[in-house]
């Protein structure tokens, strides 16, 4: 495992070099092992595809006993020690989160574009998009925005050359090889194929977002009536 400084208050732990499920499992294992008990002076751990980044306060590290001339090495040694002897943790099955989506129509103005690109009927696109099993590799870009792996190849669709000024929250889109859900109204260049009534970002709750890295996602096709009913309960 490589440990690289990212400025004077963060270290990047690199546990792999490619995006795949085995790297993802190693990222998750390292993240959980480090998060299980606080490391001195560490304020935050952020997992990504191949890395876990650890943010620390050099001043607090020295107060906690780090030598002023070797703060990063002191911290790195503790990280390696922790990862060599990870705390015993219960094996938990990955969470599967079902996300209801009303596909097409006003909610999915680009469904026809995706269908034309895939040379499939819109119904078949919906079927295949909803049938696949997606893995949340990481959350980033916007609050609760999941970077999902597992979009079937035939549904890969290039982004719009000109992004939309505003994409409504809950929009489900396809951008290149990726599919995802927009948590907030933001500009966006993805092909919108539907919308979920679920709130992806809900700052008043703990945790404040619906999905976490390591979750599995299944989309479920719903009608406009079901969308309205579900939205009323959110």
């Amino acid at each position: 495992m490589q440990i690289t400084p990212l400025g004077d208050n963060a270290l990047v732990l690199e546990v792999g070099t490619v995006i795949d499920e085995s790297t993802h499992r190693r990222v998750q294992a390292a993240w959980r092992a480090l998060a299980a008990a606080p490391l001195p002076a560490v304020s935050e751990l952020v997992p990504a595809y191949t890395t876990v980044t650890l943010f620390y306060d050099p001043w607090a590290a020295v107060q906690a006993g780090a030598p002023a001339q070797g703060i990063a090495d002191w911290l790195g040694a503790q990280v390696r020690e922790r990862l060599k002897n990870p705390p015993k943790m219960e094996k938990t099955k990955p969470r599967v989160v079902e996300i209801p989506v009303c596909y097409g129509g006003a909610f999915g103005p680009d469904l026809a574009r995706v269908a034309a690109q895939a040379k499939l009927s819109p119904e078949e696109v919906i079927k295949r998009h909803a049938k696949a099993d997606y893995l949340v590799y990481l959350i980033g870009f916007a609050p609760g925005f999941p970077y999902l792996g597992g979009l079937p190849k035939e549904l890969h669709t290039p982004r719009h050359a000109k992004p939309r000024m505003t994409v409504p929250p809950g929009s489900v889109g396809i951008g290149g090889e990726q599919t995802g859900i927009y948590p907030l109204a933001t500009p966006g260049g993805w092909n919108l194929i539907g919308r979920t009534p679920l709130r992806i970002f809900r700052p008043e709750q703990t945790p404040p977002v619906l999905l976490a890295a390591g979750d599995h996602v299944k989309f479920k096709s719903i009608t406009a009536t079901e969308f309205a009913e579900l939205q009323a309960t959110q």
Partner: peptide, 8 residues
Amino acid sequence: ISSSVNSG
């Protein structure tokens, strides 16, 4: 491959 950034 997308990874963490930091202020600075």
